[in-house]
C-alpha cells in the first residue's frame, strides 16, 4: 500500500475549499478566476490551495500561458476509494444482514398482531 502518497492525498482532501474546487472540476476544466468565484478569498489564497492539489497529483494545470486551465486527475482519488472500500464493505455487509433481520422481526410482529 503506497501509504505516503495516500497521506498526501488525504492531507489535500482535508480542506473544504479544496474539496469544493475538486467538485467544481468534476464538471470540467476551469481557470483560476473561475475557481475563485464562489469563494470570498484572494487570488493568492486560491493559488495556494491549487498548489497543494497539484502537488498531491489531484489536479493538472494546463501549459497555456494565458489562463492555465485546471483539470482533475482521477488517479489519486481512485486510490483512496480503493483503500476505503474494504472497511466500508465490512460495515455495509453487516448492515444489509441487519436489514434482513429487521424485515423478519417486523413480519413476526405483524403475524402476532393478527392472532
Amino acid at each position: 500500500m503506497p501509504t505516503d502518497s495516500l497521506n498526501t492525498t488525504f492531507a489535500a482532501l482535508a480542506d473544504p475549499t479544496r474539496r469544493a474546487i475538486l467538485a467544481r472540476l468534476m464538471k470540467g476544466e476551469a481557470s483560476v478566476t473561475e475557481l475563485a468565484e464562489p469563494f470570498a478569498m484572494s487570488m493568492p489564497a486560491i493559488s495556494k490551495h491549487l498548489k497543494v492539489l497539484e502537488r498531491a497529483g489531484l489536479i493538472e494545470r494546463g501549459r497555456n500561458a494565458q489562463w492555465r486551465p485546471c483539470r482533475l486527475e482521477a488517479g489519486p482519488l481512485k486510490e483512496v476509494a480503493d483503500w476505503v472500500e474494504p472497511y466500508r464493505n465490512r460495515w455495509e455487509e453487516s448492515f444489509q444482514r441487519l436489514d434482513e433481520i429487521l424485515l423478519e422481526l417486523q413480519k413476526k410482529e405483524r403475524n402476532h398482531g393478527r392472532q
Partner: peptide, 21 residues
C-alpha cells in the same frame, strides 16, 4: 481488512463521480 476509516464530507460523491467518469 478494515482498510482506512477515512472519508470526507462530499468525498463519496467525488469518488462516485470520478468512477462514473
Amino acid at each position: 481488512e478494515s482498510g482506512v476509516r477515512e472519508t470526507y464530507d462530499r468525498f463519496e460523491e467525488l469518488v462516485q463521480e470520478v468512477q462514473k467518469n
